[in-house]
C-alpha cells in the first residue's frame, strides 16, 4: 500500500518563509491571529479570513475522527451568555467548545431597558469572577458585545447582536460556499441573499465577509425590507467589492451560484412592512421554479431556523442543491476555529 500525501504546507512554501517559520512558532507570524475578540467580520482582513478558513478546515478534520475531541482548551472555561432564545447557535458553540475540551457554562439571561435587573456590565464582571476565560454572547441590542468586551479581561465572541452582526454565521456560510463551489472560492461568484435584509444581522456580517472575499453579492427582498442598503451599496468600503440591491427576484436569481434565503418573521406584517406573509411567499419565496433561474448546480443555503413553505419551499430546502445541513456541521468547525484562534491572543495588549 502506497499513500502519497498531498503537500500540506501552506501555499507560501518559499524557503525564506519556511526558514522564518522554523523557529517562529513561538513568536507572532505574519499571519498570526491578532483579534482578542470576535465581534464582527468588518475588522478582519482578507488574510485573516483566510486564516480562519484554513483553521476551520483543520477543525473539520477533527470532527471526522472517531473521537472528535482534542485537549486544546483543557482547563479553559467558556460561558455562553444568551439574552435571546436560540437553540442552534448556542448548541453549536457548546459542542465546539466541548470538542476542544473547554468547560462550558450556559447562562440564559434576561435584559431590557424597563425591567432593570442586573446590568450587562455587572453580569460580565460576575462571570469573570467565576473564572470564565471566554464569553460567547447573544443579545437583542446591536453593539452589546462591544460593551461586554470593554469590561471583560478574557475573550468575547459575538453569537449575534441585534440587527448588527453574526460573525460566526457569516464565516460558516463562507466556508460552506468555498467547500462546495468548484474552484473553492467565492471570487466572482454571484451570491444572492434573499429576504428580510433590514432586520438581519446574518446579512450584515455576510456583506462584510463576501464583499471582502470578492463575491458578486446581491441583496434581494421587498423594498421595505431593504431600506438603507442602497446607501451602503453605493459607499466605497476599502478592500471590499461593491454589492447590488434589487427588489426583482428574477434579476437577482439569474445565473446565481449561491442563493441564501433568510427567515421572514410574522411581525413584519404587523409592523406594516409587508401586506401579508402570503404575499411575501407569492413574490419572494425560494421555489423550485425560481431556483431554475439560477445556475443548475447553484447552492441553496439558509441560516435557520427555517419557515418551510414561507420563505423557502420544503422540496428546495431538502433538495439536491441544498447545503443547509453542511452549514450546521461547518458551524461547529468555524466556532472551534475561532475559539482556538482567540485563545492564543495575549490578554494584555
Amino acid at each position: 500500500m502506497t499513500i502519497e500525501l498531498e503537500p500540506t504546507a501552506s501555499p507560501t512554501t518559499m524557503p525564506q518563509a519556511a526558514a522564518r517559520e522554523a523557529d517562529a512558532s513561538r513568536a507572532p507570524t505574519a499571519d498570526a491571529w491578532k483579534h482578542r475578540h470576535v465581534l464582527d467580520v468588518d475588522d478582519f482582513s482578507t488574510d485573516e479570513i483566510e486564516l480562519a478558513m484554513r483553521t476551520t478546515a483543520e477543525m473539520k478534520e477533527i470532527l471526522a475522527r472517531p473521537i472528535a475531541k482534542v485537549p486544546t482548551l483543557r482547563g479553559r472555561s467558556v460561558t455562553i451568555l444568551f439574552y435571546e432564545a436560540s437553540t442552534r447557535t448556542r448548541v453549536s458553540f457548546e459542542v465546539a467548545a466541548k470538542n476542544l475540551s473547554a468547560d462550558v457554562v450556559n447562562i440564559a439571561a434576561q435584559s431590557s431597558s424597563v425591567s432593570k435587573g442586573e446590568s450587562l456590565i455587572d453580569t460580565v464582571r460576575t462571570i469573570e469572577a467565576l473564572g470564565a476565560d471566554m464569553i460567547v454572547m447573544r443579545h437583542a441590542v446591536s453593539g452589546a458585545p462591544y460593551l461586554a468586551a470593554e469590561h471583560f479581561s478574557g475573550n468575547v465572541l459575538n453569537g449575534g447582536d441585534g440587527w448588527h452582526a453574526h460573525p460566526t454565521q457569516a464565516l460558516l456560510d463562507l466556508f460552506t460556499m468555498r467547500e462546495r463551489l468548484p474552484g473553492g472560492s467565492v471570487r466572482g461568484r454571484k451570491v444572492v441573499i434573499l429576504g428580510d435584509i433590514l432586520h438581519s444581522r446574518v446579512a450584515r456580517s455576510n456583506i462584510w465577509a463576501l464583499t471582502r472575499s470578492g463575491a458578486d453579492l446581491w441583496l434581494c427582498g421587498p423594498a421595505t425590507l431593504l431600506r438603507g442598503f442602497e446607501r451602503w451599496a453605493g459607499a466605497t468600503m476599502p478592500g471590499s467589492a461593491r454589492f447590488t440591491v434589487a427588489s426583482s427576484i428574477d434579476d437577482a436569481l439569474a445565473d446565481a451560484d449561491v442563493v441564501m434565503a433568510l427567515r421572514i418573521q410574522k411581525e413584519r406584517q404587523a409592523g406594516g412592512l409587508l401586506p401579508s406573509l402570503r404575499e411575501y411567499t407569492a413574490r419572494f419565496a425560494l421555489t423550485r421554479a425560481r431556483l431554475a433561474r439560477a445556475k443548475p448546480d447553484a447552492l441553496v443555503m439558509h441560516p435557520g431556523p427555517m419557515n418551510e413553505g414561507v420563505e423557502i419551499m420544503p422540496d428546495v430546502a431538502t433538495g439536491r442543491q441544498s447545503v443547509i445541513t453542511d452549514q450546521v456541521t461547518n458551524g461547529v468547525a468555524v466556532r472551534m476555529a475561532l475559539l482556538f484562534l482567540v485563545s492564543g491572543v495575549p490578554l494584555v495588549e
Binding site: 498531498e6 500540506t8 501552506s10 498570526a32 486544546t72 492564543g344
Partner: peptide, 15 residues
C-alpha cells in the same frame, strides 16, 4: 504550552 505562546501557531494539518 498553548496558554504560554504569544499567538496561536498556524495549524499545518493532520492526515
Amino acid at each position: 504550552d498553548l496558554s504560554m505562546v504569544a499567538h496561536q501557531p498556524v495549524v499545518k494539518g493532520t492526515d
